[in-house]
């Protein structure tokens, strides 16, 4: 699972608008988005470079949490991943936590139930992968411009 955290110097409600209103999303996301913002709602992402992704909205808790799954258009579901936004008020604005993890469509790809665990493993990834894949560089946990929070 990929995790990024940044503090954005605006209120949760302003940040929520920037994350969800299509005309706002177009200003920073790299894709235009069309979505029906409720659980099960359809989504479509039109990338600035012409690529199209399909998607579905999973959870919506206004100003606090949004998750959706997305995949390259025409994919059989195996390349899908799930993105979550979590917003928490912070002294300097709003702490935004973004996660993305591979999440093939349940309809087309059997989840590997035997391997699933409930244990949290956030945080192990960078250390572990550096250790074993020393030749690859694993990106730093915070976006440029954001304040480091972990």
């Amino acid at each position: 699972m990929l995790v990024r955290q940044v503090v954005i110097p605006v209120s949760p409600s302003e940040l929520w608008n920037a994350l969800t209103e299509p005309e706002e999303v177009a200003a920073w996301f790299g894709s235009r988005v069309e979505w029906d913002l409720r659980p099960g709602g359809q989504a479509r992402f039109l990338s600035d470079d012409g690529a199209v992704r399909g998607g579905v909205v999973d959870d919506v808790v206004p100003q606090r949490h949004l998750s959706f799954r997305w995949w390259p258009e025409g994919d059989d579901g195996s390349a899908a991943s799930q993105v979550s936004y979590d917003l928490e008020p912070d002294d300097d604005g709003t702490l935004l936590t973004v996660t993305e993890e591979p999440r093939p469509h349940e309809a087309t790809v059997e989840p590997q139930a035997s391997l699933r665990t409930t244990g949290s493993w956030t945080g192990w990834d960078t250390r572990l992968l550096r250790c074993w894949a020393a030749h690859m560089s694993v990106a730093a946990p915070v976006a440029a411009g954001g304040r480091a929070v972990r």
Binding site: R4, L15, F29, L96, E100, A143, G145
Partner: peptide
């Protein structure tokens, strides 16, 4: 992780700039 992480770094930098 590197590929998807790079994309989010770009997006979050742009979001910060936008807001």
């Amino acid at each position: 992780l590197t590929e998807v992480g790079d994309r989010w770094d770009r997006r979050l930098t742009a979001l910060q700039r936008h807001l």
